[in-house]
């Protein structure tokens, strides 16, 4: 008997379609993400990247199926979903003066939800660990209203780390951040991914960042998949030219050449 090695699909989408009124934002997209991989969603504005992320997070209605290790996400309870899939969204604005620790601690919600599910003994450690690796321990009592954009983003990253999911879904994790923060956040995520059983799916606008950190990519254009697979196979000059309508490689080279004496 021939044994087929089990490929553990951390996330698998089949024919995912999202419609806003008459516009088809994501069109019959299929994709998969295995453990240890970092899948980059790339494509120009309006390609449907953020929409797909919202669908995976069960925030908007879609047709087709999205599965985590074979289980349809639609059948999971909200707290069960959060224990498996953590989402870091693009816009995080806090209106009230919660402390950093309170916001990060909220990441443990799914593990203690329900009246009789008992205490979350691991919670304190996870929060502590999350604060530490994101460098927020000193700021733990600071009010969210006093933080800078970069600190704020780190707080929500710490929250999703404290949530301890197996798949991390990130929508522009380093958007509007200075370069040093970009680097910090991406290396934090890369370190997180090193633990066994984990996977990352993210939208990254900056193609250089996508190329640097991604293992795989899905290139989207107007809701349709143009190419998917290994990052080096997807991000070819031809594919990028087709999607962005310009010579991306030449442009990147030109940008870089400014720095060479």
């Amino acid at each position: 008997m021939i044994r087929v090695p089990d490929v553990i699909r951390a996330l698998e989408g089949n024919n995912v379609t999202v419609r806003y009124d008459r516009v088809v934002a994501v069109d019959a997209l299929s994709f998969h993400l295995d453990e240890g991989e970092w899948l980059m969603l790339a494509g120009p504005n309006g390609a449907g990247k953020s929409t797909l992320i919202e669908a995976i997070a069960q925030g908007i209605p879609y047709t087709g199926s999205i599965r985590w290790k074979g289980r349809d996400l639609k059948t999971l309870k909200a707290s069960d979903l959060a224990q498996r899939i953590g989402v870091l969204s693009q816009k995080n604005h806090v209106g009230y003066a919660y402390t950093v620790e309170e916001v990060v601690g909220l990441g443990r919600y799914a593990w203690k939800a329900g009246l009789f599910s008992g205490r979350d003994d691991r919670g304190k450690d996870e929060v502590e660990k999350a604060l530490e690796i994101t460098g927020l321990t000193a700021l733990r009592h600071a009010s969210m209203l006093t933080l800078s954009g970069g600190e704020m983003q780190r707080v929500f990253l710490a929250q999703v780390f404290a949530q301890d999911p197996q798949v991390l879904i990130l929508d522009e994790p380093a958007n509007h951040l200075d370069m040093n923060y970009q680097q910090q956040i991406f290396s934090l995520i890369l370190k997180w991914l090193k633990e066994p059983g984990r996977a990352v799916l993210s939208v990254v606008h900056d193609l250089s960042l996508a190329r640097r950190y991604g293992t795989h990519a899905v290139l989207l254009d107007r809701g349709k998949c143009v190419s998917q697979g290994l990052i080096s196979e997807v991000m070819t000059p031809e594919n990028l030219r087709q999607v962005y309508g310009m010579d991306v490689y030449a442009w990147m080279r030109e940008m870089l050449s400014q720095w060479q004496e």
């Binding site: 997070a57 909200a78 953590g86 909220l106 949530q163």
Partner: peptide
Amino acid sequence: RFSPELNAFAIGEDNARHVGVN
């Protein structure tokens, strides 16, 4: 009883959903 959920909503409804609030 719902004070943790109220905290989650006060931080943001999307965030509440992401951390597992129904």
